[in-house]
Simulated scan of single mutants.
Amino acid sequence: MGDIRPPDTGDLHVSVEDLDAAADYVERLKQYVDDTISYEMERIKERMKGDSNNAQTVPNGTPFGAYEDARMQWQALTTSTANMEQHLKALSGKLAALKKGTEDIAQAFRDTEARNAANGKQIERILESAAPPPATTGTQPTYPYKA
């Protein structure tokens, strides 16, 4: 196996504004899943119930009929619909986690930039308040003790 090299991060830069825009976009996707697609799934389930005014008179009947094939198709459709609902809920949860993670990354960069700016200002103040170095006269400093 070959060695794994670290990624080249020489020109890496982060745009907090782009991260914020990405979080907003993910939120819009989540709202679309939660509102539009979930609403359509509810409509499908209602339509699957059939005409409630004309109840089935045949025992074990489905909207597709009472034959074995019809019951199997009905069960497959019901299972498929339930699976789709679970996938939509999972997708919504993953989109929420993606949005939260993106916002956390953006906040971490904001905090880091603020700390770096504060540290830079503090270093500037320290350097400005420092006394200039003493002029060198070419003589050796004297010490109060001898080695």
Results as ranks from 00 to 15, higher is better:
S92N: 04
Q86Y: 06
T81Y: 15
K94D: 08
Y32K: 01
S15Y: 14
V16F: 11
Q31N: 08
P144F: 15
D69M: 11
A22G: 02
T36Y: 15
L127G: 07
Y67E: 04
G101L: 09
A108R: 00
E85A: 11
A147H: 04
Q56M: 08
M41G: 00
A106V: 01
R28C: 09
A23C: 05
P141C: 06
I4Y: 07
K30Y: 12
S92D: 03
R110Q: 10
G120D: 09
A117N: 08
K30A: 13
Q56D: 08
T9C: 13
D18G: 10
D69L: 11
M84D: 06
Y67T: 03
G10C: 09
T139H: 14
N53H: 03
G138K: 02
R125S: 00
M41P: 00
A90L: 05
D18R: 07
H87E: 07
D104P: 10
D20N: 02
L95G: 03
E113L: 14
A118W: 10
K121M: 15
P141M: 09
Y25S: 06
L77S: 01
T78P: 02
Y67R: 00
A55I: 06
H87T: 02
N54D: 09
V58F: 14
D34Q: 11
A21M: 04
Y143P: 00
L127Q: 12
R28A: 14
A66M: 08
L19I: 05
M41Y: 04
P6K: 00
R43L: 12
L19M: 08
T112F: 15
F109Q: 00
V14S: 04
A82F: 10
T62E: 04
Q86F: 06
D34M: 12
E17T: 11
K146V: 12
Q73E: 07
A118I: 05
A130L: 06
A97V: 09
K99F: 13
A55H: 04
T102E: 10
L91E: 08
P132D: 13
V16W: 10
K89T: 14
T139S: 13
L95I: 06
G2P: 13
G93N: 03
I105Q: 00
L91C: 12
R115G: 03
L95A: 05
I4W: 05
A114L: 01
A66V: 06
V58C: 08
P132K: 08
K89M: 15
Y25E: 06
A147W: 10
S92I: 03
L88V: 02
S92H: 07
L91T: 13
P132N: 10
W74F: 14
V14A: 07
K89C: 07
A117R: 06
L12N: 00
A22V: 07
D24L: 05
K99I: 12
E46P: 03
A76V: 01
N119H: 12
I123E: 05
T79S: 08
A82N: 03
I44Y: 05
M41I: 01
G50N: 05
D8C: 13
S129W: 06
V16Y: 10
N116A: 04
T142E: 11
L12W: 11
Y25G: 05
G50V: 10
T136S: 12
G65H: 05
M41S: 00
A23R: 01
S38V: 03
S38K: 00
A90P: 02
K146A: 09
D104G: 12
P132C: 06
Q86D: 08
G10A: 14
K30N: 07
Q31F: 13
K45M: 11
E42Y: 15
